[in-house]
Amino acid sequence: MSGPNADTRVGDLPREHAVLLREIHHLAAESARLRHTMHTDRLSAADSAGVLDQLGHLDRERELTEIAARSQGIPPSWVEHARQAGQTGRAWTDEQLLRAPTRQQAGRRTVKRVIADAAQLVDMAAITAAREHLLTLHGIASEPEPAAAQQLRRNMDALWTRATRTAAAIGMSGRERARAFTITDEHLQQRTEQYLHYGLDELNAEWRNHASPAVAASVRRSLSSLRRDARTTSSSTSELDADLSKPAELRSRARAVLGEAVAMDQAESGQATEAAIAAALPDQLASDLDADPGFDGGEQPTTTEAHRDAGPDR
């Protein structure tokens, strides 16, 4: 192999490393192909469900393969390079060059990972709230996949722990923490409402990706590495814990903002319906209705009163 500070040719990698990177590239490429099919082909509901199942399987296999690659010492930047090449349709050959990771790149990657973990927590809270809402609309009152739901909660706890512990270990500044950890209700509402545009099958597939055990497994491994490399900083973990909303709180907030948004939409929909009915009425009919005391809370005359002055009976 090449020296530690030189680019590395894929063909010069140990065979087991080359196989793992090639598999990551293949799985990412297949996933991208299927996603393209969903957006370009007119599929039936059954075919769409089948494609979503395949996508879920491919993504889980890729995540597990990436975990295996990193656990064997393959640099994360090489894993990411193989994945991105597959997703963008670029070829993967033995002549492919892999750039040597530097300490500076690793440091930037650590900060970005904290930001990415916080963003993923927002997505997981938003998709949980949106999915619960859609399940209710479909008449499903209880969680149909309780084991996966529990795993998703564990994954969120793991991501929250990694984000706060990493921020403490690398000594993130107050400004950096605020940028990474501040989660507004407006942001939560925006993300949650975006998921409401998904069909239930598609939303379930996304939700299962977040509920994969591979998420927590990857976090545990990176936390072990963090403990080995941690250095003393001025920021205590307890101080940083307060900066990022805990997972249970995020889920509750997502449900709350979604409930407010749905209630507002229903109110606006009712007002729009009333306005449409009023606009559809002929002007003369609307005027007659306005003049009729029966439509204004007044009492209408009885039949006897209406004909009282008709004259004596003959």
Rank of each mutant, 00 (worst) to 15 (best):
T93G: 09
R153V: 11
S77I: 09
A163D: 02
R165K: 13
P144W: 07
D123Y: 00
A116L: 10
R162H: 11
A168C: 04
D185M: 01
A118R: 02
P146T: 13
E80R: 15
T102G: 07
L121R: 04
L98N: 09
Q87W: 04
H197F: 04
Q87V: 14
R108Y: 05
D94F: 07
H197G: 09
G171S: 10
A158Y: 00
M172G: 12
E143S: 12
T166V: 14
A100K: 07
R131A: 11
M172C: 12
L137W: 09
P144I: 11
L121T: 09
A178C: 03
H197K: 08
H81W: 09
M124I: 01
Y195K: 00
D123V: 00
D201A: 13
P76M: 12
W78Q: 11
R113Y: 06
G199L: 02
Q189L: 06
A91S: 13
I74P: 03
R154P: 03
Q84G: 14
R179H: 14
R131C: 07
L200D: 04
T136Y: 02
W160L: 09
A129L: 04
S77E: 13
P101Q: 14
E186N: 08
T161E: 14
R191N: 04
L97N: 09
W160H: 15
R165N: 12
Q194S: 10
W92I: 10
D123T: 03
T164F: 08
I170F: 08
A130R: 00
R162K: 08
L188G: 07
P146G: 11
V79D: 14
G199I: 05
A100C: 06
L137P: 01
T88Q: 15
M156L: 07
Q189A: 12
A163Q: 00
R175M: 10
T136A: 10
A141T: 09
